[in-house]
């Protein structure tokens, strides 16, 4: 009898199960609550202009989080991305300053290649030499940051040295929406396809969730790791160019400490540091939550001295709420299966 009833309500229940299956439900819920709270305090929060600003300022974080997600899925971590952003941004800016007529798209490519080479070095150290990711990337973070200071000799590249075309890379807009947002959306789609529908994408999950069985089933672990870190490096290099173009200035300490923000976005979004799990939607939500915090805290008109405290508190609250909701979801899952 029960099964019949269940069948009758099937479409409705399916929707509901799908909803409950979404493991980052708590996070979504939290973000909505947060938005309502901020909107009450400052009505200019949910306006078209502010939402576009928020999206533009969060795009770079989203792109980097995608890369960090696949690194974390393979049980790795990359602490060097802030330094790679600075290095590729500085070199590209110097290239633009020396040849103002250069095609901006070529600059994007140039930065991405620099980043990919940095990433490949990391990948080789981890996959071939067998260093632990945290140590290899911590060391290379120092090296890349030092190199940036060396090539720049302490100088900055300023906006008057950059061509209009280069600044328009991240400043211009298409259909009224900033290029950065388009780029971020593009990468989200690519990653969605890559992770879910390609063999390599699935191999990344396999390597992360169980390295031994992945190796036994013939997956070339070293190659996957090398690929993952190269992608991360390439994305960082790309973001370095975008960063410099967005702020129209390149300095040696660009994006210092940004790696922690990116890692936070991923882990908030449910990517496990122990590897194997992580969904694009969750990471997107994590990055959006951090983007909202950065955008909303100045709007709240609280004392600037409270901003840090509130930010830390909200991040902790978000992960805890998410954890509790997840437990509920898992429990209903189990009950349903048992029933």
């Amino acid at each position: 009898m029960e099964t019949k009833e269940a069948h009758a309500e099937n479409p409705k229940k399916n929707m509901l199960t799908l909803f409950y299956q979404f493991r980052e439900l708590g996070l979504l819920f939290f973000i909505i609550l947060l938005c309502i709270g901020v909107q009450i305090r400052n009505p200019s929060f949910l306006t078209g202009e502010n939402i576009l600003d928020l999206a533009t300022n969060t795009s770079i974080l989203v792109i980097l989080s995608l890369g960090m997600m696949i690194v974390l899925i393979t049980r790795g971590i990359d602490l060097s991305i802030g330094a790679v952003i600075a290095l590729s941004g500085m070199l590209t800016a110097q290239l633009v300053a020396a040849n103002p007529s250069i095609n901006p798209l070529l600059c994007l490519l140039f930065g991405t290649v620099i980043g990919a080479v940095c990433g490949m070095v990391i990948g080789l150290l981890i996959a071939r030499v067998g260093l632990l990711p945290i140590i290899a990337t911590l060391a290379l973070m120092n090296i890349f940051r030092g190199l940036t200071f060396l090539v720049s000799d302490g100088e900055w590249v300023s906006s008057y040295q950059m061509s209009d075309g280069f600044v328009a890379l991240a400043g211009g807009s298409f259909l009224g929406i900033n290029h950065l947002i388009w780029i971020a959306v593009f990468f989200c789609l690519v990653f969605f396809y890559f992770l879910n529908y390609t063999r390599t994408g699935r191999q990344i999950y396999a390597v992360g969730s169980n390295p031994q069985s992945a190796a036994v089933s013939g997956i070339k672990q070293g190659r996957v790791l090398l690929l993952v870190y190269t992608i991360m490096g390439g994305l960082s290099g790309l973001c370095g160019v975008l960063w410099v173009s967005k702020f129209a200035s390149a300095q040696g300490d660009t994006a210092s400490g940004y790696e922690l923000t990116v890692i936070a976005a991923c882990i908030l979004g449910g990517v496990s540091i122990a590897g194997g799990s992580g969904k694009l939607a969750g990471v997107l939500l994590g990055a959006i939550l951090l983007g909202i915090l950065n955008n909303a805290l100045p709007l709240l008109n609280v004392s600037p001295f409270w901003q840090n405290g509130i930010q830390g508190f909200i991040i902790l609250l978000a992960v805890i709420v998410n954890a509790i909701v997840k437990r509920r979801v898992d429990r209903t899952h189990l009950l349903r299966r048992a029933g």
Binding site: W306, Q307, N308, G309, I310, Q311, G312, F313, I315, L316, V319
Partner: peptide, 8 residues
């Protein structure tokens, strides 16, 4: 989280 919170 506590890193940001404690300094805050």
């Amino acid at each position: 989280g506590t890193m940001i919170l404690y300094r805050g």
